[in-house]
Design a protein around this nucleic acid. Structure first.
Lengths: 276, 276
DNA sequence: TATACTAATGACTAATTGGTCAGTTGTCAA
DNA sequence: TTGACAACTGACCAATTAGTCATTAGTATA
């Protein structure tokens, strides 16, 4: 397990520099100072490694952003959102670079499907956010606005990541908040409609089922050492199987696990499931 | 020469689907129904082919956009600009796809340098355009605005190219015109300053020199068959060596060659040089 | 110490890569 | 018909790729 972590970290460094295709397993193993065979003990192929990386970081990323957005007050919501995203990219800049590099690359079918899935989750977060902020004001423009916001994120991330300029994240977030507000308030002509979005998202993936969440919880429970968080997870698992607890208690339990580094994704899934 | 064209076209198809790295010369030669040796008679390496493709399309693209922008009246300027760009992308969608796919890819040093060069030319066109449109109104926000406009182009191009949805270019351009006007008129907080731009553009490339233009003109003259356009080029070449002609005549000559498919780039360079 | 086990190695394979070059073909003018 | 020359071919090369597997090293238990 620890070796898996090492490989993922070192591989990510190379992927960020060279991209997936241009990075050979040879290079990865050399960069880890392990043998080729050792690599294949941890991952059964290069593809599996890449998917593991995507999964690991995207679950962390999405759940973190979602948490910050749901916690924030309306007045600071947009700022918090932008700041959290860019900060996340900054902290995991290698992964963010890979993301930007490979987003239009036709590397692999399952890779694209996976990315699309997470992209949809981000869409949902942004949509909820602007509905909360602007309400009926943006009924007809909200999908266009979501696309613009994602565009801002992508474009300014490029700047952040590929030009080694020290950057004032505060100013960046403030500037994007203003732009977003402008577009939200004054836009009348939209290009992106709900229909267009839906026709693009044909491969819609079913919601995460209760069984899937259970599976993930059980795995986490096995992995974790005894702690309040583990105990909370066990209780939440029981609640999932048979709802008996008071909503306040459930919320409390969710709060318990939110900040545990390995539980953010589970926490996100459960919050969605219990509708908090 | 005709074979070179064939290879470029067929290679572009494959590049658009798979990207540079993932496309082998084997594949290209098979797709052209020629032998490997024949490929190396036209291009001395894969890299040379790619650079030739970039050069061929980007010169066409930049000069075309510049022409349309300089010709347009202020009222329709922004619309013309967006429409021309997306239309160009639509017409040469394979090339546009390659462009989007490879823009963050670290394929090759000279490739990046070349792309950066053309990117700067586009920057200049956009900057001139918004200065003309908004004047002093955007003195402090214009660099930020340029970046946003380029962002819009990139983001919406992705939609255009990678989702096979039939698209209303007219609506798209109109919607972006509105957004651009909004940002131009109301933006107060900017993230991108002139200093930031300049610090990013460290590898500034010197202007195209008179000698370089002469070189290109001479090559074109050799390639072209007898025609008004060729005659115009010869006269413009003399004017370049020894300015004797009336500005009106020069402008007329430039007009003569503007619409010749192989002279657009030369025309662009000359217009810049003679400052029309 | 002997046994049993997993973790790790790196030489190996088969396939593919970009690129070369001796030889073949086709097309002219003499 | 001949000779000259450019266009073209595809077998070939060295390098590199993802992935395998017999072998060995290390370690914990009996």
């Amino acid at each position: 397990m620890i070796k898996k972590q090492l490989i993922m970290e070192k591989a990510l460094e190379l992927f960020a520099k060279q991209g997936f295709e241009a990075t050979s397993i040879q290079q990865i193993t050399e960069h880890c100072s392990i043998s080729k065979g050792a690599f294949y003990l941890s991952f059964k192929s290069k593809e599996e490694l890449i998917l593991a990386l995507i999964e690991y970081f995207m679950t962390k990323f999405i759940s973190d952003i979602d948490h910050q957005v749901t916690e924030a007050e309306n007045e600071e919501l947009l700022f918090t959102f932008y700041y959290a995203i860019f900060n996340s990219f900054y902290e995991h800049s290698d992964f963010a670079k890979v993301l930007l590099k490979e987003q239009t690359q036709t590397f692999n079918e399952s890779f694209i499907v996976k990315m699309h899935e997470y992209d949809r989750l981000l869409d949902k977060i942004i949509l909820t956010m602007i509905e909360r902020l602007y309400g009926e004001e943006v009924t007809y423009t909200k999908y266009d606005l979501v696309y613009c916001i994602k565009g801002f994120i992508g474009n300014y991330s490029k700047l952040l990541l590929f030009y080694s300029t020290p950057v004032d994240l505060n100013l960046l977030a403030k500037s994007l908040v203003e732009k977003t507000n402008l577009l939200a308030k004054y836009t009348t002509i939209t290009f992106i409609s709900q229909e267009l979005i839906e026709s693009m998202n044909l491969p819609i993936h079913g919601e995460v089922t209760k069984e899937k969440i259970l599976e993930i919880i059980e795995q986490k429970i096995v992995e974790m050492e005894e702690s309040i968080e583990k105990e909370s997870l066990v209780l939440l698992k029981q609640q999932l199987l048979e709802p008996t607890l008071n909503p306040a208690i459930v919320k409390g339990l969710l709060g318990n696990i939110q900040n545990h580094p390995h539980c953010k994704w589970v926490s996100y899934l459960l919050r969605n499931y219990f509708e908090y």
